[in-house]
């Protein structure tokens, strides 16, 4: 077998000599930037479209989309009374906000022990028993939360958030056809983070308007921070970082109320 041999082939011809972490870094930054830019652009488009929804259309849409339990009046007399009381509070606060007549504010009561309230499409607000329990010592505290939800409605946050949500979901669904499921998970997380940014902006704007409203109604914002203090105590300090939250931190919101109070008392 003369002339037959297997010499050594040098290493590295078939493998690209590049550190895997370098490629990883470049790709993660590239893809993240791409998704953030697209998500922001789609968000703005969605919000733009939502702003073109008339109030009447929004009310009609809410009527069709929302669960039936909210549109029915509560069955028990005690709940009825509670609802009526909350509705009166909302109407009093709404006078200071100039909420258009085409968007009637409807307050619903839920006996669930959740310490929260929420505003949704078509001027509907849900107040939970848990919130009433937490703020039973101070009407200002309840009024602060109510005014906050009213501010969401006044500023049309539910519709804007819905428009943004749809647009970003549409964008992310096109990513679903590409790459691996890991990659999709990443795209979803990054897309959600941009949505959270808008959410925090909306909450901060609603807080500002709510503070002004409470001040106009009661002449003071004393006690407005009770709800946040309560919520803060419940967290036991286990709060995720701001970038991962839908709301500004409780401390930040309490500080804001205190600043407002200090400013008002200084002005008098």
């Amino acid at each position: 077998m003369n002339g037959y041999e297997n010499p050594d082939i040098p290493e590295g011809i078939n493998v690209t000599q590049e550190h895997p972490l370098k490629e990883f870094g470049q790709l993660v930054i590239g893809v993240t930037a791409l998704i953030i830019i697209l998500a922001l652009a789609f968000s703005e488009l969605g919000a733009y479209a939502a702003r073109h929804l008339t109030l009447e259309q929004e009310v009609a849409l809410a009527h069709r989309m929302l669960p039936a339990m909210w549109t029915e009046t509560a069955a028990e007399p005690a709940e009825q009374a509670e609802r009526k009381h909350l509705q009166e509070l909302a109407d009093r606060l709404a006078r200071h906000m100039a909420i258009p007549a085409a968007m009637p504010v409807t307050v619903h009561y839920s006996a669930e022990p959740v310490v929260n309230a929420m505003a949704t499409l078509g001027g509907h607000i849900v107040v939970y028993q848990g919130l009433l329990d937490a703020t039973k010592d101070s009407e200002t505290a309840l009024a602060m939360v109510m005014a906050h939800e009213l501010a969401h409605i006044k500023l049309r946050h539910p519709a804007t958030a819905m428009g943004r949500g749809f647009a970003v979901a549409l964008l992310l669904s096109t990513f679903a056809g590409l790459g691996d499921n890991v990659m999709q998970g990443w795209a979803n997380s990054v897309g959600t983070l941009t949505a959270l940014r808008y959410s925090r902006e909306q909450e901060a704007a609603a807080d500002s308007l709510a503070l002004e409203t409470v001040y106009r109604e009661y002449g003071t914002v004393k006690g407005a921070e009770i709800f946040f203090e309560h919520a803060s105590a419940e967290d036991n300090g286990l709060t995720p970082p701001a970038i991962l939250s839908t709301h500004p931190s409780h401390e930040e919101r309490i500080r804001k109320i205190q600043n407002f109070a200090a400013k008002e008392s200084g002005a008098e």
Partner: peptide, 18 residues
Amino acid sequence: IVKHLGLVNGNTVRAKHA
């Protein structure tokens, strides 16, 4: 052919962009 030097190979993996 005066000399046989055995197997040689070349490979590459490519992805097309989205």
